[in-house]
Every structure is written in structure tokens, then in C-alpha cells.
């Protein structure tokens, strides 16, 4: 019995440790004070107003959406194509190739950022939306690859062979069989790509110009300039978005499970 209590206490403490920063920041989103500190004098939505109507914040939100959407599309297409290619048993060094695709997950973002800036400068793409989208795509692709590869691994190859034997050309097999069956994985990969882009700061610092300030980047700079509770409001938006995204992922996973 004491063991059980110890376990429960430990688990509670761990969870608290993990969510403490969230608990600390969330109530401040609704403060009426002009500084980001406790105690909260009274409740207000003024910082959400600031977020949506102050020029800098509004532009940051719009930028985040533009860059997030671009990254999602690019990363999903590339990641899905990569996963499909990695299925082919005839590919040489298949394991190495797969690791290569997952590398951006473990390479320090700072290193990637420096490299990315040098590279994009060479193409004249620094300080452009396309440059930021490309940079974000590099770190988002691994999430798509992991997610789509998982979904593809769950497809019985003989189902595709059966479709072929029933008269479906390879492109038709992909459109009617492979893609629909992998769709939950593609969707959750896309959602993860969007989430990655949304909270990416380091690469953005390196490659984005003042016109491509994303919401995360804006939070980063405003916490140094003026510690306004608008940051807390932005954080609140982030959390809501993340929870929604998480729900989509969970739903698509359970959809996948139900198919089987």
C-alpha cells in the first residue's frame, strides 16, 4: 500500500512539473494589469483585444498562418513521397536513407539555422516567406515521415496486389487504395507539421526578416522589450491550438485503428 501511495505521489509531482509553466502563464492571459506578474488585480480580455488589433501581433498571427500553411503543404507532400519511396525494398541503403530523413529531429536547431541562413542567402531567399517555409519544412518533414511510414506499414501489401490483379493501373492503386488507407497517417503528419511550424523560433530567428515575424518570434522579442500580458494571451492561443491539433491526431489514430 505505501508503495502505491508513493507511486501516485511521484506521478502527480511529475505531471505537475510538466504542466507548471502552463499553469503559471494561463491565468495571466486574463489579467487587467499591464505587466506580466501576479497577483492579478482583476479579470479582463484586453490582452486578447491587443493581440487581434495591435498591428505587430495581428501581423504575427497572419504570418504564422501563412508560413504554417505553406510548411504543412510542402512538408506533407515531401514527407509522404519520401515514405512511399522508403517502402521500396529495392532501394539501396534503405535504413540509412530513413535515418537521413529523421536527422533534422536530432540536429541542433542552431546548427540547422546557421546552415540554412548561409544556404538561403546563396539563393537570395533570406527575409522571404518562401525561405522561412523551406526552413520550417526541413524540421517538419521528419514528423510527416514517421507518421506516414507508420500508416503505410499497416497496409497489407497484398491488398495493393489484389487491386492490381483486378485491373487497377499503379496510379489508380495509389489513388483508390494506398492513399485512402494511409490518409489518417498523412493527416496526423500534416497536423504535426503545422504544429512544428507554429512554435519554431530558432530557425525563424536565423532566416526570417522583420516582415516574416511569426507569432512565436513575436512572443520571443516582446518578452525582452516589454513584458506585456499579451504574451500570455498568445500563449493561451497556442495551447488552445495545440490541444485542438492533439485532438485531431488522436481522432485520426483511432480512425486508423478502427479500419483494421
Amino acid at each position: 500500500m505505501p508503495m502505491k501511495i508513493a507511486k501516485a505521489t511521484f506521478a502527480t509531482l511529475t505531471v505537475l512539473f510538466l504542466v507548471a509553466p502552463l499553469i503559471a502563464i494561463l491565468p495571466l492571459a486574463f489579467t487587467s494589469s499591464v505587466i506580466l506578474t501576479y497577483p492579478i488585480p482583476s479579470w479582463s480580455l484586453r490582452w486578447f483585444e491587443e493581440l487581434f488589433f495591435a498591428d505587430a501581433w495581428r501581423r504575427a498571427i497572419v504570418n504564422s498562418l501563412i508560413i504554417g500553411t505553406g510548411t504543412t503543404l510542402l512538408a506533407t507532400v515531401l514527407g509522404t513521397a519520401a515514405s512511399l519511396g522508403l517502402r521500396n525494398r529495392l532501394i539501396l541503403f534503405r535504413g540509412t536513407m530513413r535515418t537521413l530523413f529523421l536527422l533534422p529531429m536530432v540536429v541542433p536547431a542552431v546548427v540547422l539555422g546557421v546552415g540554412m541562413q548561409v544556404l538561403l542567402a546563396g539563393f537570395g531567399l533570406t527575409n522571404s516567406y518562401l525561405g522561412v517555409i523551406i526552413a520550417h519544412t526541413v524540421v517538419a518533414v521528419p514528423f510527416v515521415v514517421v507518421s506516414v511510414t507508420g500508416a503505410l506499414a499497416g497496409i497489407d501489401e497484398r491488398v495493393e496486389l489484389a487491386a492490381q490483379s483486378l485491373g487497377a493501373a499503379p496510379a489508380t492503386v495509389f489513388r483508390r487504395i494506398t492513399l485512402p488507407l494511409a490518409m489518417p497517417g498523412v493527416l496526423s503528419g500534416a497536423v504535426l507539421a503545422f504544429a512544428t511550424s507554429l512554435d519554431e523560433v530558432v530557425l525563424t530567428l536565423f532566416v526570417a526578416g522583420p516582415n516574416q515575424r511569426t507569432l512565436a518570434r513575436q512572443m520571443f522579442s516582446s518578452i525582452r522589450e516589454n513584458i506585456s500580458p499579451a504574451i500570455a494571451a498568445a500563449a493561451f492561443l497556442f495551447i488552445v491550438a495545440t490541444v485542438l491539433i492533439g485532438l485531431v491526431v488522436v481522432l485520426s489514430r483511432s480512425m486508423l485503428a478502427k479500419r483494421r
Binding site: 491488398v159 489484389a162 485491373g167
Partner: peptide
């Protein structure tokens, strides 16, 4: 133009 029946049926699950 050959019909193939597999051991695990290989029906389209979706």
C-alpha cells in the same frame, strides 16, 4: 485479366 484470391482475402478495408 486474372482474378486472384489470397489466403488472407486481401479485401479493401475502406
Amino acid at each position: 485479366d486474372m482474378g486472384v484470391v489470397f489466403q488472407n482475402y486481401a479485401l479493401f478495408p475502406h
